[in-house]
Simulated assay, not measured.
Amino acid sequence: MSQTELIKIDQLNINFGENRVISDVSLSLKRGEITTLIGPNGAGKTTLVKAVLGLLNPSSGTITRNEALRIGYMPQKLHIDTTFPLTVERFLKTAAFSGTDDQLDALRSVKAETLLKQSVHSLSGGEMQRVLLARALLRKPELLVLDEPAQGVDINGQVELYNLIARIRDQYNCAVLMISHDLHLVMAATDQVICLNRHICCSGHPEQVSSDPSYIELFGVPGSENLALYSHHHNHQHNEHGDIVPLAEDQHSNCGGHH
């Protein structure tokens, strides 16, 4: 592993019984880089993240982590019984042993320090996402794993949240691994985009389209230049069983928004 690599995955395979859900995946997560993982439902995104977090053992292949690697995890959703009284302050204490000062620092990092004494049940979707992000930051992570962080947040909130994640990457000098379900939107700040459909279909940098008229018409909000459409080409397709079928040269497909 290089000095900047925090996790290196080599030829990873994960089987559930007879079903292979991750096939020959190799990638690395590097300090200071944002990696966005995209793909259709059932592509194995969550399975791959669980392997990165150490919650699943590979059937074959290797996952090499920096020694004592600190990982902060932000789940896609968190269901808390509405009959259970819980303030943001008490909720943050479930992440790690931390005092009020640490909690306020984490909330300040996500611009949500005014929420400390509020009930988690009174928070808006965007506020809850920020609290979940603050909770992950209490671990002072070297790797921050975010499962669809913009879920349930309106487009203005998404722009703010993506900008916030980029600032946190800079502040903590951490790696970020982010799952995105909406293939039409990928952060322009993303350093690496990985398209997964059990195996890595393709990977690369997002394209900048901030001056495209159709892009401006679609988003039409301040700060939308911080998002970019991402399109890329596949040299194969999948049959009904999910197996790879090569395409003829004139059939190469663009997967910009169709996965």
Rank of each mutant, 00 (worst) to 15 (best):
M1D: 09
E5H: 10
E5D: 15
L6T: 13
I9N: 01
D10F: 03
D10I: 11
I14H: 05
F16T: 13
F16D: 06
R20Y: 03
I22F: 00
D24C: 02
V25F: 00
V25P: 02
L29A: 07
R31Y: 04
R31Q: 14
I34Q: 08
T35F: 01
I38L: 02
P40T: 08
P40F: 03
G42I: 11
T47D: 01
T47E: 02
V49L: 07
A51L: 02
A51T: 15
G54D: 03
N57M: 09
S59V: 12
S59M: 01
S60I: 06
R65Y: 11
R70E: 12
I71G: 04
I71D: 05
H79N: 15
F91L: 11
S98W: 03
D105G: 10
S109R: 08
K111N: 15
A112L: 04
A112T: 11
E113H: 09
T114A: 13
L115H: 09
L115D: 08
L116W: 07
Q118W: 05
S119E: 05
S124M: 02
G125F: 03
M128T: 14
M128E: 05
Q129G: 14
Q129L: 01
R130G: 10
A134L: 04
A134K: 03
L137C: 09
L138S: 08
R139P: 10
K140L: 05
E148D: 12
A150M: 06
G152D: 03
Q158F: 04
V159E: 00
V159F: 00
E160I: 12
Y162H: 11
N163A: 11
I165V: 15
D170T: 14
Q171I: 10
Y172S: 07
N173P: 04
V176N: 02
S180K: 06
H181I: 10
H181R: 02
L183N: 06
M187D: 09
D191E: 04
D191Q: 04
D191V: 07
Q192R: 14
Q192A: 01
V193R: 00
V193P: 08
I194R: 01
L196D: 06
N197R: 12
E207W: 04
D212L: 05
F219E: 00
F219H: 07
V221F: 00
P222G: 08
G223R: 03
S224R: 02
L227G: 07
A228S: 15
Y230W: 13
N235T: 15
Q237H: 12
H238S: 03
N239W: 02
I244D: 00
V245S: 03
V245F: 03
L247H: 05
H252F: 12
S253H: 08
S253F: 09
S253Q: 13
S253G: 09
N254H: 04
C255E: 04
